[in-house]
């Protein structure tokens, strides 16, 4: 970087420290843009891939009301993907890239998405658990990002977080019906919880002594995020562990406990090697879901051609 650029970056950082918010057309250091693109692409693609595990349960949702609510929820996820991909496209425009590049990177294995969306959803309780405990984790991350320095992203997040709050109610309502239901329904939820717990612990990423430190440090410095992975996980545990236990369900971690004085949770570290493998598309459903997306994208190409030929703004 030349000295001018360095001085400009320094000035940019000082303005961020003063609470300045950045807009899409403002000057920004390349590293700032790169971190934002990385983060928002990950978020957008996770929303898009996140439609697939839950949509599997729309036809099988037990009642007409649950079918409707789940359709609305999955539609919201697609809508969030749409909103975020536009924010990412604005940032990528100077590089001459758009959403097609994102999809190509996804299909080529160069674009990651969240670990939870690589996993199977074998029962209705899993579908409910995603709404309650996975979306509950997402809202903790997104709530923290709301205070970030890039205004277009925080504006999109405001709407997303508002809708996610409904998703949690939807998921919680499914899980409460199971918790208050028959022995079979309760067992179904307990099995789902046992299955998902390690993935929920992985959701926020490794703690600070892990390997993913560089992006975390950069996004903290750029005031894109304000809390570390571990701070978010601690907050999540404080919020959800008492709820889960009060329903009489067992969290499959005998070491899990909260220090009565510091309020800090100790817990069994999930297998971070496995986490790396999962987000590198080696999860149990990674290949199938990527194939689903790849096939539908390829087979829908003619429709996008029609749109490109006939509509001005798509």
């Amino acid at each position: 970087m030349n000295p001018d650029g360095e001085a400009r970056t320094q000035e940019f950082l000082e303005r961020l420290d003063g609470g300045h918010l950045v807009e899409a057309d403002d000057w920004m250091p390349d590293a700032y843009r790169a971190e934002l693109v990385r983060l928002i692409r990950l978020h957008a693609v996770s929303e898009i891939m996140g439609t697939l595990p839950e949509k599997e349960w729309v036809p099988r949702a037990p009642t007409l009301y649950r079918k409707l609510a789940l359709m609305a929820k999955v539609q919201d996820e697609a809508g969030h993907g749409q909103l975020l991909i536009r924010v990412a496209e604005d940032l990528m425009a100077p590089r001459g890239e758009n959403r097609e590049h994102i999809m190509e990177d996804l299909f080529a294995g160069r674009q990651k998405f969240h670990n939870v969306f690589h996993l199977p959803v074998p029962t209705w309780a899993d579908a409910g658990l995603i709404g309650w405990l996975v979306d509950g984790a997402a809202i903790i991350t997104q709530g923290m990002l709301l205070g970030g320095s890039y205004a277009p992203y925080t504006r999109a997040l405001r709407r997303i977080v508002e809708e996610e709050a409904f998703h949690i109610q939807h998921g919680e309502s499914i899980c409460m019906a199971l918790a208050e239901g028959t022995a079979g329904q309760r067992a179904m939820f307990q099995e789902a919880l046992t299955r998902w717990w390690p993935a929920l612990m992985m959701f926020f990423g490794p703690p600070e002594d892990g390997a993913a430190l560089s992006h975390q440090a950069a996004t903290l410095r750029f005031r894109i995020r304000s809390k570390t992975n571990e701070e978010l996980r601690q907050r999540y545990l404080s919020k959800y562990v008492p709820r889960i236990r009060s329903l009489g369900f067992i969290i499959p971690d005998p070491t899990l406990q909260q220090d009565p004085d510091t309020k800090a949770w100790t817990y069994q570290q999930p297998d971070w090697q496995q986490w790396r493998a999962i987000i590198a598309n080696h999860g149990p459903r990674s290949a199938a879901r990527l194939n689903l997306r790849r096939t539908s994208y390829a087979e829908g190409q003619w429709v996008r051609d029609v749109m490109a030929a006939t509509r001005k703004a798509v």
Partner: peptide, 24 residues
């Protein structure tokens, strides 16, 4: 509803899902 997440375009995914929800 089976088209959820698989429509040829993101915007259409959202629109077609609204139609599916209306019908349901």
């Amino acid at each position: 509803g089976e088209w959820l997440g698989l429509a040829p375009h993101l915007e259409e995914d959202v629109a077609f899902s609204s139609i599916a929800q209306d019908e349901m």
